[in-house]
Design a binder for these strands. Sequence first.
DNA 1: TGACTAACGTTCGTGGCACTAACGAAATTA
DNA 2: TAATTTCGTTAGTGCCACGAACGTTAGTCA
Lengths: 155, 155
Amino acid sequence: MTDTMDEQDTPEPLRALPSRMLSLVAMHADRLVSEGLAGADARKWHYAALVALRESGPVSQAQLSRRTGVYRSDMVSVINELAGRGFVERTPDPDDRRRNVITITSQGRRHLERLDKLIAELQDGLLAPLTQPERETLTGFLARLLAHHSRREAP
Amino acid sequence: MTDTMDEQDTPEPLRALPSRMLSLVAMHADRLVSEGLAGADARKWHYAALVALRESGPVSQAQLSRRTGVYRSDMVSVINELAGRGFVERTPDPDDRRRNVITITSQGRRHLERLDKLIAELQDGLLAPLTQPERETLTGFLARLLAHHSRREAP
DNA sequence: TGACTAACGTTCGTGGCACTAACGAAATTA
DNA sequence: TAATTTCGTTAGTGCCACGAACGTTAGTCA
């Protein structure tokens, strides 16, 4: 937002535009999360990758990319950073020498547990103005929108 | 999203993350709107500026910037593009020679009316999976989140 | 077996957007 | 009159989604 924006006298047809509201809220959410994670020397994608690794066990970078939604070209540096901090190990897969197998380390698990708590707090801060049932209603809506718009668009 | 993303087997703790859902939905929304507007040779900011001009009458670029949330440095090219298409006029303000007064032309008004319809359709497509009362609930939530997070953060 | 196709990790590049810095000109405030 | 602020503008930064291309390796099928 502009340093001196008057959201106040933004014209109503703009202020009430769902796509605009979504963008703005997502911006605030992103900023909140990114700044929070920066305090723990982490980025969103670090968290995504680590969670996926804990959930699925050791997988290739490509699988990690698909599960997290991070492009495989961008996953490279994510793994670099995580490996540099000792949170994951990148080892060539003997069964398929094209692949790297990414494994979370015990240090990585501990780091992830810290991030879990941090992320939970940040989500709480994000949704602060909503009651618990309202939060569930909201996420339900978002899930439905996501399901609807993630279908193939060129059949 | 990755060309071949399996949102399906994204780990649950990631899939259920409100901030992540918001980002993804906002991405889809942005894409939808941008592509729709591109079909009418327009951009989001064009619409924002034109709406603000219709709502408030002729104003300076700085005011336009504050009302739309578009940075004043980026507003320059927006006005350039709109002026190039004959939708607005940029004239120096005789009362304050720092300012430009931006005025919407009748051609601009007609263009805006087309965009109004287009935008309405796009919002409808965006919210397709939700019933009308659900849409209102959603936008209500978003408005509250926005109000909460737009307050100055460094008091 | 050999040719084709596809997946993998990686590098490089693009375009859009939020955002900052700086500047000259002009207005406002002290 | 001097200091500060506002305006339009240019240039540039950093992040992110996304695509192109390449060498390497596996699977497919004639």
